[in-house]
C-alpha cells in the first residue's frame, strides 16, 4: 500500500509540475485534486473488477448448473442488473437506500452512507451481472467432448468445472470480457453523479469553479491513458493464455 501512496504523490508532483506552464491558472489550484480523481477511478475499476470477476464466475456456474433454483436466481440477478441503467442503480442505492438511514439499514448503514462504497458496490454488481453472461457463453461453448472425458474419468462436477471447463471457458470468453472491463471504466464516470470525486467528479468540480473548458481535454487524455493501459494489459493476458497449436 505504501507503494501505491508513493505513486500517487509522485504522479501528482510530476504531472502537475509538467502541466503548470501549459495551463497556469487552472493547475495552480486544481492539479492535485485532478490527479486524485484519476486514482479514485483506477481504484473503483480495479476493486470492482477483482471482486466482480470471481462473483461472475460463481453466477455463471450457478446459471449453467443442473439446479433450476440456482440457475433461476442467477438469471434473475443478471436480468435485473443488466436490464436497468447503471445511473438508476447508483441513484437507488445511494439516494434511495440512503434515505432509509441508520435505523432502516442497521449494520449496512456505514456502507450506504459513503458515496464511494456505494459506487463500488453498484459497479461491482453491475459488472458481475454482465460478466456472468459473458462467462456463461464461454462455458456453454466448451465442446461437450471435453466434459464427457472429464465425467467418464470419474471427476466430480466441481473438479470438472475447476480443472477442465473454466480454464477453457475463460479463454473463449476473454475478448468479450475485456470489452466489458473497458465499458466498466467508462461507466464508472457515472459515480460522479452520486458525489464520488472520481476523475469525472473532480473534473466537474474544477470546471464549476474555473469555467475553464481545458479541464475536459485533460480528463479525456487521462481516460484515454487508462483505457489504453487497460487494453494492453487485457491483451497481454489473452496472449499469455493462448494455447500453442490454435
Amino acid at each position: 500500500m505504501d507503494f501505491y501512496f508513493d505513486a500517487k504523490i509522485w504522479a501528482s508532483d510530476t504531472v502537475c509540475a509538467a502541466l503548470r506552464p501549459v495551463s497556469p491558472t487552472l493547475f495552480a489550484t486544481s492539479c492535485g485534486r485532478f490527479i486524485d480523481g484519476f486514482f479514485v477511478s483506477i481504484e473503483l475499476l480495479v476493486i470492482a473488477t477483482l471482486i466482480g470477476f470471481p462473483l461472475a464466475i460463481g453466477l455463471a456456474l450457478a446459471r449453467t448448473s443442473r439446479s433450476s433454483i440456482l440457475s433461476a436466481l442467477s438469471y434473475s440477478y443478471s436480468y435485473v442488473f443488466r436490464g436497468t441503467p447503471l445511473l438508476v442503480q447508483l441513484w437507488i442505492f445511494y439516494y434511495g437506500f440512503g434515505a432509509l438511514g441508520a435505523s432502516g439499514l442497521g449494520l449496512l448503514w456505514p456502507l450506504f452512507r459513503d458515496a464511494y462504497s456505494v459506487g463500488l458496490i453498484v459497479l461491482t454488481i453491475n459488472t458481475s451481472a454482465y460478466s456472468a453472461e459473458i462467462i456463461r457463453g464461454g462455458i456453454v461453448n466448451v465442446p461437450n467432448g471435453q466434459l464427457e472425458a472429464a465425467v467418464a474419468s470419474g471427476m466430480s462436477w466441481w473438479t470438472t468445472m475447476r480443472r477442465i471447463v473454466l480454464p477453457q471457458a475463460l479463454r473463449i470468453a476473454w475478448p468479450a470480457y475485456s470489452n466489458e472491463v473497458l465499458l466498466l471504466l467508462k461507466g464508472s464516470a457515472l459515480v460522479s453523479t452520486i458525489t464520488v470525486l472520481d476523475l469525472m467528479g473532480q473534473t466537474r468540480t474544477i470546471f464549476a469553479r474555473s469555467y475553464s473548458l481545458d479541464i475536459f481535454v485533460y480528463a479525456v487524455i487521462l481516460y484515454l491513458i487508462l483505457s489504453g493501459g487497460l487494453t494492453v494489459l487485457l491483451r497481454w493476458i489473452e496472449m499469455r493464455m493462448r494455447l500453442p497449436g490454435y
Partner: peptide, 24 residues
Amino acid sequence: DQKAVRLMRARLAMVFQSFNLWSH
C-alpha cells in the same frame, strides 16, 4: 450414489471417437 458412480467411472476408462483430450 454419485460418489460410488464416480469411483466406478474412474475404473472404467473410455476412449472416444473424437479423442477428447483436454485442449488446454
